[in-house]
């Protein structure tokens, strides 16, 4: 029992360790999934805003797989003032569809609409998005000197690697090269499907072997006395004390020995009594009838 307890404790610790080691990223599916994706600080002849003007702009990417409303969040170019520009709530334009984009214009002309901010990007070379409480930072970027009409952005949407992009891509994928699907990549390495068969069969077997192991031991698992398992193990002194408590006196031992002797010596090969089945007839009496003695079932 002690051994199995140890095994269970060891397994528990091992599972916790594995979970700890392999615990991956958490995906918030909320404003925390928004990313500053691309920005153009010096716009001489590039993307024009809804007023036909060339001004600095930046793109926010929704990396989640659900629509995220950026309304209610804050944008700033000043780390000391996180609530510099409040993005109004309730406007359909602030709803960013899954894996999609929204472009803001940093032209310091906020009267032109909610996408036109009250700051520019070249003042501080810093840009950040804060949550609605104005305290929790969602994303920030500190960038260096910029070239005219060359955008600075994440090399692939939402990724952590930044650089100057070959093409400016407002409201589009930052990566403009050929996109190879996961399947095509897989087949490039495994053209005959042998790798797939090996990996996939191993995973299927692993899943079902795991189930096999668990259900082979389920009975043992739920027959464990968890009270005993999680109670403290008694110390040596306590064990000795319990042992001394259950120690039996000589008189009791003698009595048990006598009883055993009598029991064994009284055994017979041939019994004198006769075992038979005899019908015992009892006359009926309403006083002994069960139907009067038992209560009727409640309806």
């Amino acid at each position: 029992m002690i051994k199995s307890n140890k095994t269970i404790r060891f397994s528990g610790a091992l599972i916790a360790l594995v979970l700890g080691l392999f615990a991956g990223n958490t995906y918030a599916q909320s404003t925390r999934d928004l990313r500053i994706n691309e920005l153009l600080v010096i716009n001489d002849s590039n993307y024009v805003d809804d007023y036909g003007q060339h001004c600095a702009w930046f793109e926010v990417f929704n990396s989640a797989y659900n629509t995220v409303d950026i309304g209610g969040s804050y944008l700033t170019n000043d780390p000391a003032n996180p609530t510099k520009y409040y993005i109004p709530k309730g406007d359909p334009i602030t709803q960013i569809p899954p894996r999609n984009y929204l472009v803001f214009y940093a032209d310091n002309v906020p009267t032109r609409g909610i996408l036109h901010l009250n700051f520019t990007l070249d003042e501080t070379n810093y840009l950040a998005i804060y949550e609605g409480n104005g305290k929790n930072l969602i994303d920030a970027i500190k960038f260096g000197p910029q070239s005219p009409d060359v955008s600075f952005g994440r090399l692939t949407d939402g990724n952590h690697e930044w650089g100057f992009l070959e093409k400016t891509t407002p409201l589009a994928n930052n990566y403009t090269g050929t996109i190879v699907s996961a399947g095509e990549k897989f087949v490039e390495m495994d053209p005959y499907g042998v790798g797939m068969a090996v990996i996939a069969m191993s995973v299927v077997f692993a899943a079902l072997i795991l189930l096999y192991i668990v259900f082979k031991n389920t009975k043992r698992l739920y027959s464990i006395n968890f009270k005993k398992l999680f109670s403290r193990e008694p110390t040596k002194e306590a064990v000795a004390e319990i042992a001394s408590e259950v120690e039996i006196s000589g008189e009791v031992n003698a009595a048990i020995a006598m009883a055993l002797y009598l029991y064994i010596s009284e055994l017979h090969d041939h019994e004198e009594a006769i075992l038979t089945i005899k019908k015992v007839s009892r006359t009926y009496s309403p006083w002994s009838s069960k139907i009067y003695g038992l209560r009727n079932q409640l309806r």
Partner: peptide
């Protein structure tokens, strides 16, 4: 399945058909 969990492994082995067909389809 619960009474004889080793039968689960047969369920895994029979999935070979999927990956065999995958290889042929690629070919």
């Amino acid at each position: 399945l619960i009474s004889n969990p080793k039968l689960m492994l047969i369920g895994a082995a029979a999935q070979l058909g999927i990956f065999g067909a995958y290889a042929i389809a690629l070919l």
